[in-house]
Write a protein that binds this DNA or RNA. Sequence first.
DNA 1: CTGTTAGCGCGTTCAG
DNA 2: CTGAACGCGCTAACAG
Lengths: 337, 337
Amino acid sequence: MTSGSGSRPTSADVARLAGVSRATVSYVLNGKDGHRVSEATRDKVLAAVRTLDYAPNAAARTLRAGHGDVVLMPLPSLPLSPPIDANIQHLDRELAERGLRLLLHGDRSGAGAAGVRSFAELRPAAVLLDAHRCTPSAVRLLTGAGAVVLAIGKPRSVRVPYLPMDSVAVARLATRYLLDRGHRRLACLVPGPPLVPLSEPRFAAVAGLAADAGVPVERVDCHMDVDSLRPAVARWRGSARRRPTAVYAYNDEFALLLIEALRGAGLRVPGDIAVIGSGSFPMGAVLRPTLTTTHIPAGQIARAQASTVRRLLDGEPLNHEEMAAAMQPVLTVRESA
Amino acid sequence: MTSGSGSRPTSADVARLAGVSRATVSYVLNGKDGHRVSEATRDKVLAAVRTLDYAPNAAARTLRAGHGDVVLMPLPSLPLSPPIDANIQHLDRELAERGLRLLLHGDRSGAGAAGVRSFAELRPAAVLLDAHRCTPSAVRLLTGAGAVVLAIGKPRSVRVPYLPMDSVAVARLATRYLLDRGHRRLACLVPGPPLVPLSEPRFAAVAGLAADAGVPVERVDCHMDVDSLRPAVARWRGSARRRPTAVYAYNDEFALLLIEALRGAGLRVPGDIAVIGSGSFPMGAVLRPTLTTTHIPAGQIARAQASTVRRLLDGEPLNHEEMAAAMQPVLTVRESA
DNA sequence: CTGTTAGCGCGTTCAG
DNA sequence: CTGAACGCGCTAACAG
């Protein structure tokens, strides 16, 4: 209760306590180039700031400047997973280093006009938006509000700066690995909704690479449930001849699920069938057999995102090389393949 | 490119286009009690809003009102998991229904003065803060900035409204279940850092309830690695006599890990040893044996959080019953225990 | 070189 | 339904 509930010290309070003008307070706190303040007054001001617990009002600053230092991102529509978590963490750091602050918006459904409008109201410096949320009206509203829009992934129907997300690269790398290891009969798990937007392209990539090598790929539609894998697994147990020697499981969770199903059928991993996933799901490193997997390091992506936002704000051209390089996937070889 | 990049329509633009004053625009958009606007002008204004893609400037509103409609919460310091994700999702909905918007701050480390200061700058209506981040200076800064502070969990050294988080309730419920099922020799997994703040109290709760029933509890210190469980599991395999008949695994991830370790040692779950976790980790419902588990529904907690924030903002007294009721854990019986 | 005065940005709301 | 003042920090123009 030291300083009551509604004190809200303003720069005027600081100025009064320090015996200077509000302008001086501002100059001390923002240290613009052209203006100098004597050591003595600077100290007085900073002391006053401390005694009053003064925190400048971001709303006033934003109002004056036309935009704030906030980078707004809706929470991903996919369920939050450790990799996404890592990306957010890195992104926050990278943005902070560039004078920006990351704020996550809780509303994921916010594709609708209402959601985007609420973004626009906050007058963020920039908005990071999933490609599929980049509708023309959304972009118009946001840029109209003075925000820089950066799409994550290539948007379908709008011209707007975007970071080309290669969410299929992990599948390609995994497939190449399997091929290199000499596997000549593959299978690929293809989860249904809501994962179709990712699972279909990944399957296509696996099938494409395999076809180039003259290797057949068995498609296994499934969902997050062992039972959905049983038919395929039962087939595989039946004929050692025709079963795949390796499976790309779409991601680590499904890889775990598949291993479970294979174990239930008496098939050994990787002895009878090798399994590889994607995503560096923590449990995959810990359950046995530990998972061989591919993923794109969260730090790389985050750095590219932050750097691109900064460039956009500064009116600099995009660095396409940096963006592409950030999408390089990484292979982690463990026990399962 | 319809409306250029930096248009930023203001309420004055809307007023001009609609042929009315800015005051009228404001009244139309906020529909205060005392003021009526004719149907005709209202329509003109709304039409203008639409043609201009006008979104009111939250910064200006916040500046005028002294605080915004934003509820700020740092991302939890624990890694984002599906339960936390669910909580965030629910919280966003519940707050939205109460006229508030949830913003997650990316900076988790933000215990330091700098982090809190950056919260204060945003002039949020309220801040949700982990109990352990509620230092006196943090609270002073925040309330000084006009924000309502709600601690999640009981803070050590500050008097501030808080939501009593019963993170041990899940352990008690699990233990009661095991006892009810007739288990008379228990074990409890106790993960080390960084989980100690949760794992120790849970162990204490398990031990306490078991002691009341005259049941011994074997403590198993461990971490997220099968190897750390091998010594205990090896002991248990050796003597069927003295091994526990059931284990409280701290949470579902550790339960999965334990099942893995037990399987490696040839022990059956739940035949030889029953295993119960906490947290409703999705993979636990899907891997075999499926996990019996306890958790506190995310929706309940979120509702209590939102409702409490709203009461605080409205100056109403806290509803302690509602808060306590929200902490009721739920048991999900599946195969593992 | 150091510090001050004054007006702006935009939505809200009281008095007309 | 309108005019005008207000909230707070920034910065161009200006005075010692």
